Amino acid sequence: MKTDVDNFLNYLMVEKGFSGNTRDAYHNDLSQMADFGVKTLRKRGDQDLWDNFSRQDMLSYILDLKERNYAVTTVVRKLAAAKSFFSFLLEEKKIRRNPTDNIESPKVGKPLPDAISVQQVKALLEQPTKSGGQESKRDRAMLELLYASGMRVSELIGLNVADVDTDEEQVRCFGKGSKERIVPIHPQAARIVFEYTNEVRPRLLRHDDEQALFLNRRGERLTRQGLWQILKEYAAAAGLSGEVTPHTLRHSFATHMLNGGADLRSVQELLGHANISTTQIYTHLTSEHIRRAYDSAHPRARK
């Protein structure tokens, strides 16, 4: 039994190039499964642990993990280790059948995205105006555009000057798979981006052939890391607790749109989601808004 596990772990290191930490994690998971298997098979009088470890034993092991209140993500990881291990044993002809065949991993629920309130967004967007200087005007344009459009950070930093039409109040961005979409923006965001493009960007520009809309102090396209650092500093200045990232503004955009009455299909198109099920996660975030509306409107709910 121990030899089989050791051979598998050596295989992971040599053939698959796994790290020492990953090897240790697999060792712990498989040792736990082996302990469970020994106790189970001992009751039946079976000798060869792995060849007699049945599909039902595997299901019992998973149930045991759940009853011991292991997190779903931990159960998924331990099952993944077992699947890899038994596939290896089958390949090596150490077992006659794989007890993990047709056993699906438990579903891991997607964590609800974090969103900040309208008041918190307002406080955040006001921070660049307090700093002064041309870079603060660039920062304000970036943050306003993020919240006005719900764009991903990669989409924002990938924008070229020609992608924003401030007269038509819309922006063209390229999402996952280079899929193009046109997103409307409100007049205030369009005005702020226009002012940055015409007044500040020329001062940051170093090369006439540079097409990027948002530039760093070297006149080059701003990076994802650069934007994250800028936002982090403004979030701290606004007194926002917890981690606020560019994606937080995307989540807040979606949540506030739905709370304001936008339909799910429209928000899906604005966010550039290929599947509406991805957008539906935001409906969970509007429950508090719905609850307040219900409590204030229903005759029996009024206090």
Rank of each mutant, 00 (worst) to 15 (best):
49 L>S: 01
167 D>M: 14
19 S>G: 06
74 T>E: 10
99 P>H: 03
140 R>A: 02
174 F>P: 06
291 R>P: 00
266 S>Y: 14
257 M>P: 13
69 N>C: 12
96 R>M: 10
260 G>D: 14
159 L>N: 08
222 L>P: 06
209 D>S: 05
22 T>H: 02
165 D>A: 06
171 V>P: 11
5 V>L: 08
218 R>Q: 13
257 M>L: 15
132 G>M: 09
53 F>W: 14
250 R>G: 04
242 G>H: 01
187 P>S: 15
280 Q>T: 06
297 A>I: 14
5 V>H: 00
258 L>A: 11
239 G>Y: 11
283 T>A: 07
11 Y>V: 15
74 T>Y: 10
173 C>N: 08
186 H>P: 12
35 D>F: 11
80 A>D: 10
300 R>C: 13
72 V>R: 02
196 Y>W: 02
254 A>P: 09
277 S>M: 08
158 G>R: 00
154 S>E: 01
151 M>T: 00
37 G>A: 15
49 L>K: 03
296 S>K: 15
301 A>R: 00
201 R>L: 06
19 S>E: 07
295 D>C: 07
32 Q>L: 09
92 E>N: 01
208 D>S: 07
152 R>N: 09
242 G>W: 05
57 D>V: 11
32 Q>S: 06
208 D>R: 04
225 Q>T: 03
198 N>P: 04
173 C>T: 06
281 I>G: 09
258 L>R: 02
261 G>K: 00
280 Q>W: 10
186 H>D: 14
224 R>C: 04
162 A>F: 05
123 A>F: 04
108 V>Q: 08
261 G>R: 06
278 T>A: 15
117 S>F: 02
243 E>F: 01
